[in-house]
Amino acid sequence: MGMSDNKKRNITRLIMIAVSTLFVAVMLVMPLFMVIINALRKGISFYLKAISTPTVISAFKVTLIATVITLIVNTFFGITASILLTRYSFRGKHILQTLLDIPFSISPVIAGLSFIMLFGRMGWAAPALNAINEMLGLNIRIVFAIPGVVLATIFVTFPFVSREIIPVLNAVGSDEEEAASLMGADIFTIFRKITFPHMKWALFYGMVLTTARALGEFGAVNALSKTRGETFTLPLEIDALYLSGSADSIVAAFAVSSVLVLCTIVILILRCIVEGKSKMNASDRDKTGKLSEGIGYVP
């Protein structure tokens, strides 16, 4: 007699659990663990000194500026794009929808380089930029300056918010908005009282993902940022520390990395809470609306 189906199923399950646990442990948990161990190898005082050098502090600031501006711009843009794509029909809608996904399909380095081509000294937009600078007596530079870092970060995190909101808006449909508009509500009231409550948790989730990605972006920023201590973000600073090669600087690189890892863990926890909330919310207030499962793309 062979094994019962039930038993077979149980064994299959056990094997699958073992494989995925092992994989997660080796590929994800161990490396992060190694970061913490290495960061603390030369003691707490070295650790504190390593994360407070002028270049690291500057990198903190640049990262913070880039992340905050990116978050604001992409949140605003994401909400607008989602409503446009789910509530209006117009010519070229599908093209716009496809274009939105470009940051997912293009290598960040290429994104960075394309900004150089556009805004650099020989770039297409350079004459316009020069004209503006001359007219207003300014000296705005984009490439190899903080605006470039911000632009690159915005570019790579562009679709996160709309990607989260669109499925939710599609699932709830526009009936409620139509009903409200028929009763004479203006679009701001409709957004505030009907659309926003529906998308609230998806939006927050999208914002969390945007933040996580913005903090960790390397490739695109690397192409546009060349001055350590001025335009370097944390990932670039870590890279610079590590490449400088002395035993001390390698430990320092791990120390700074551990700060980013900490940020990531905080974001992961936030993410868990939001996911729980939005699921609860979904079952609580909305039995038909399907919760988006996210895009499975976490840096």
Partner: peptide, 27 residues
């Protein structure tokens, strides 16, 4: 005109009271 939608389109994030009051409040 008052309109009753096929699936009612009640405002899911509002109470019964707020649902009924909505059309009056926006006026």
């Amino acid at each position: 005109i008052g309109f009753v939608f096929q699936n009612y389109a009640l405002f899911r994030y509002m109470t019964v009271y707020d649902n009924i009051a909505f059309g009056l409040q926006v006026r």
